[in-house]
């Protein structure tokens, strides 16, 4: 008997420490968050470790989630993104401190964060259907957690244009995933 929950029900139940509701949350969001984590970490085993940390953090700091600030998925996405970025950062730090002990670690770290490797095959195929602008914008906005203002600055684009492009990119994703979903 597979029970379904609305987002509001999930929030209440998980707040009441309902493990069944939490299992449902995991079933519905784990694969997507894993995709995001894997796009940043780029290692299946490590990504699974991060995913585990993400859900335990979601459970343990659930009282921190404020529905007034946005969607539950958005909150979890932020946690996943931050933990994934922390993991690659500490990994890069280790490697870089071994190889180039003379270089400025702050500068190197900044570089490592802004140069993630999104070579997950599935995502690549989907993103290939987007033009270059849309692809970059989705990368930055979704996988790296850039704000649209930051993207506008980085790409030297008006904020309105960035917002429209994010919208267009997601519309394309929607069409693509809808098609896949129907197949």
């Amino acid at each position: 008997m597979k029970q379904t929950y609305t987002q509001d029900e999930l929030i209440v139940l998980i707040g009441e420490r309902d493990q069944k509701a939490f299992a449902y949350l995991y079933d519905h969001y784990s694969q997507a968050l894993f995709g995001v984590i894997n796009a940043i970490v780029n290692d299946t085993e490590e990504s699974e470790d991060v995913l585990q940390k993400v859900f335990l953090k979601v459970w343990n700091s659930f009282s921190m989630y404020d529905p007034a600030k946005g969607r539950l998925y958005t909150w979890m996405l932020n946690i996943a993104r931050n933990l994934a970025i922390d993991t690659t950062r500490s990994k890069h730090e280790k490697i870089k401190s071994k190889i180039q002990s003379t270089s400025n670690p702050v500068y190197e770290n900044t570089l490592s964060v802004s140069e993630p490797s999104h070579n997950a095959i599935g995502l690549k195929t989907i993103l290939e259907n987007l033009n270059e602008d849309h692809k970059t914008i989705i990368d930055l906005a979704y996988f790296e957690g850039y704000t649209q203002e930051e993207i506008a600055k980085k790409l030297n684009m008006p904020l309105g244009t960035v917002k429209t492009k994010v919208r267009q990119a997601i519309l394309v994703l929607r069409e693509l995933t809808k098609k896949e979903f129907l197949q």
Partner: peptide
């Protein structure tokens, strides 16, 4: 949902051991 589906398809299925 479209974002969730797109990212879910971007990686191998998660091992059930994680859950």
């Amino acid at each position: 949902q479209s974002l969730i589906r797109a990212s879910a398809r971007s990686a191998k299925p998660v091992s059930p051991a994680v859950k």
